[in-house]
């Protein structure tokens, strides 16, 4: 599934990002990398959504959200080593 299909107040883990390099790099610099946990704050609208990752809230456009593959995070928490 992709991030845009996620539910509010659920935490997901990023599996892969399929965007053009520049955009992917910007997301990575913000900490949105493979394996990073993302919590959806508001995904009610058809277009952009708001999420939180690495301690900060962001608004993400629809195309970005649709190109981030995630999987459900069973514990809803960052796995600790």
């Amino acid at each position: 599934m992709n991030l845009k299909m996620g539910k509010n107040r659920q935490t997901y883990t990023v599996k892969s990002i399929r965007l053009e390099l520049a955009l992917e790099r910007r997301l990575e610099a913000l900490g949105l990398t493979e394996g990073a946990p993302v919590t959806i704050l508001n995904n009610d609208k058809k277009g952009a959504m708001t999420v939180r990752f690495r301690g900060t809230r962001f608004a993400l456009g629809r195309r970005i959200a649709e190109h981030i593959d995630v999987e459900e995070n069973v514990s809803c928490q960052t796995p600790k080593q």
Binding site: G47, T56, R57, F58, R63, I64
Partner: peptide, 11 residues
């Protein structure tokens, strides 16, 4: 439209 909004929402 690119639909590639990416902006921090500060506290």
């Amino acid at each position: 439209a690119e639909q590639t909004l990416l902006i921090e929402l500060p506290e």
